[in-house]
C-alpha cells in the first residue's frame, strides 16, 4: 500500500517535472523540433540548420560589415540566441510525417506564443503559420511552420527579435516590406 502511494507520488513528481521542462522550453522560445531521422535520405532537397549561441557568435565574426547583406544579417541577429531551420522538399506528396509537423504546431499553443499570421491556400494546399513569443511586450521568439504537399519548413528563431531590424532586412533576403512603421 505504501509502495503504491510512493509510486503514485513519484509519477506525479515526474509528470510535474516533465511539464515544467516543456513549459521552460516554450518559455525561452526554443521549440522541440523532432529529429526527422532518415527524412533527408527520402527528400529531394533538405536544409538542416542549427545555429546555437556560440555558432551564431562565430558566424557574426565572419560577416563582412562592408557587404550590405552581411551588415543587415549582423544587425538582425543582435539579441538572437539561436536559429533552427528544418526544410525538406520531396518528389511525392506527403512523404513526410505530418504528425511530427503537427507536434511542433501543438507546442505553439503554450502560453506566450501568439499567432501572427495563418495562411491556408486551397489551390496550392499551402499552410503557413507564423507565431511570436511575446514576453513583456517584446518578441522573444519566432516560429514559422510552412507546409505544402511536397515540402515543409520549420523556422524557429530564439531570443529577442527586433522587428525593426527584421524590417531592415527588407530586400536583402527576399523579406518583404512588412508595414511596421507607425501609420499616421
Amino acid at each position: 500500500m505504501i509502495m503504491k502511494a510512493l509510486f503514485r507520488h513519484s509519477m506525479l513528481v515526474l509528470v510535474g517535472t516533465l511539464s515544467f521542462c516543456t513549459n521552460t522550453f516554450a518559455a525561452d522560445g526554443q521549440l522541440k523540433i523532432p529529429e526527422f531521422a532518415g527524412l533527408a535520405d527520402k527528400a529531394a532537397e533538405s536544409v538542416i540548420i542549427t545555429l546555437d549561441p556560440s555558432l551564431l557568435r562565430l558566424a557574426a565574426r565572419f560577416l563582412d560589415p562592408s557587404d550590405p547583406e552581411d551588415a543587415a544579417a549582423r544587425a538582425a541577429i543582435a539579441g538572437i540566441k539561436g536559429i533552427y531551420v528544418r526544410s525538406y522538399k520531396f518528389d511525392q506528396d506527403f512523404a513526410y510525417p505530418k504528425a511530427d509537423v503537427d507536434m511542433v504546431r501543438k507546442q505553439l499553443g503554450a502560453p506566450g506564443w501568439q499567432q501572427l499570421v495563418q495562411v491556408r491556400t486551397r489551390a496550392e494546399q499551402q499552410n503557413v503559420d507564423i507565431y511570436l513569443l511575446v514576453e513583456q511586450e517584446r518578441a522573444n521568439g519566432l516560429a514559422i511552420i510552412a507546409s505544402k504537399p511536397r515540402e515543409f519548413t520549420i523556422v524557429n528563431i530564439v531570443g529577442s527579435i527586433d522587428m525593426k531590424k527584421l524590417h531592415e532586412l527588407e530586400g536583402q533576403f527576399g523579406i518583404p516590406k512588412l508595414d511596421l512603421e507607425d501609420k499616421k
Binding site: A59, L63, I83, S87, V119, I175, P176
Partner: peptide, 29 residues
C-alpha cells in the same frame, strides 16, 4: 575559419528561408 564560414553560410541561408516564408505569408495576406 572553415567552421565560421560554414556558420555564416548557414545563417544567410536561414535568413533567406525565413524571408521566403514571411514573403509567402505577406503575399497571401
Amino acid at each position: 575559419e572553415q567552421e565560421g564560414l560554414e556558420a555564416r553560410k548557414q545563417l544567410l541561408e536561414a535568413l533567406r528561408l525565413t524571408g521566403e516564408k514571411l514573403d509567402v505569408a505577406y503575399q497571401a495576406v
